[in-house]
């Protein structure tokens, strides 16, 4: 839902970032307002997953230029856990397994960390069980998964449902979902997308990082951004995703090549 007067939640300006010695993001600009659903599309290696990791504060990525503000405050100076507590959520492409740590306990500690930031009281084991059982409905997840270790032995689909369950519990204002559709069969995709749709409202925003149109058949984006070589090359409405689906990414390559050629010309030639 696009409302020009809605508050800006996330503002990314000329963001550049590298991993080890490799520059990946080369000037990303993006403004996300409350109520909006954005899709960021692009080939493997275009930088879209890096963008999600940088926003969440992964220590392997170094920001070299630009800024990111979240509700007006500098997001980049915060530790990953602080970002999560104030309402930035990253749904992982490959959620890691954490043997020995109970999923239920993990969810409770995470939820309470967020609630403390929101000024809500801490939930004890019983109150939390009530809450989690209610939120399980969002992703139609079997309560048996609560008793297991975090993601351990979960199938790809179960891991993604566990991600959306976390999102449902943490109640983020900006949810970044990195390739949430990868590795899902049609049924699981429908359930996960249904969960995301249920959680989207006028006060929060969703950033879908995806490769394919099929996720966008289930979740309708307000904006579609096409990323290539560490930049957002083009922005449009939902029809841009369809165009991309029809024409393939080769078209993006051509556009990128033209852009780079323009940039390497000398000022005299441009004149």
């Amino acid at each position: 839902m696009i409302r020009p007067d809605a508050p800006v939640l996330l503002e990314i300006r000329d963001l550049e970032a590298r991993v080890e010695d490799k520059a990946i993001l080369k000037g990303v600009n993006l403004t996300v307002r409350a109520g909006e659903i954005h899709a960021v599309m692009g080939r493997n290696g275009s930088g879209k997953s890096t963008l999600s990791k940088v926003l969440a504060g992964h220590p392997a990525y170094t920001v070299t230029a630009g800024s990111v503000t979240y509700r007006g405050d500098n997001l980049l100076e915060l530790d990953p856990e602080q970002r999560a507590r104030i309402g930035v959520f990253l749904g992982f492409q490959y959620p890691v397994e954490i043997p020995g740590v109970s999923n239920l306990e993990f969810l409770r500690v995470a939820t309470n960390a967020r609630r403390a930031e929101q000024g809500h009281e801490e939930l004890d084991t019983f109150a939390f069980e009530d809450l989690v059982r209610e939120r399980l409905q969002v992703v139609q997840m079997d309560p048996a998964f609560l008793e297991r270790s975090v993601n351990e032995g979960f199938s790809g689909g179960e891991k993604k449902r566990n991600e959306i369950l976390q999102m449902a519990l943490l109640d983020p204002l900006v949810a970044i979902l990195d390739e949430t559709d990868s590795g899902l069969d049609i049924d699981a995709l429908r359930i996960v997308a249904g969960g995301v749709n249920q959680l989207a409202n006028a006060d929060n925003a969703t950033l879908l990082i995806t490769h394919y149109q099929r996720l966008l058949d289930a979740i309708t984006p307000d904006y579609v951004h096409v990323m290539a070589a560490g930049r957002i090359l083009r922005t449009g409405g939902k029809e841009l995703a369809l165009e991309l689906e029809q024409r393939g990414y080769d078209w993006v390559d051509q556009e990128l090549a033209a852009l780079e050629a323009a940039q390497t010309r000398t000022p005299a030639e441009v004149a």
Binding site: E81, L90, V96, A110, A113, E117, L170
Partner: peptide
């Protein structure tokens, strides 16, 4: 097994502090 940077980041990205994340994983292990 190894406590990996990715496991720690995963817990941190859910609002769990670095030290608490390590301690959760170690006590889970023990």
């Amino acid at each position: 097994c190894r406590i990996s940077e990715d496991q720690l980041f995963y817990l941190q990205s859910r609002g769990i502090g670095f030290e608490e994340a390590v301690s959760m994983m170690v006590s889970g292990f023990c």
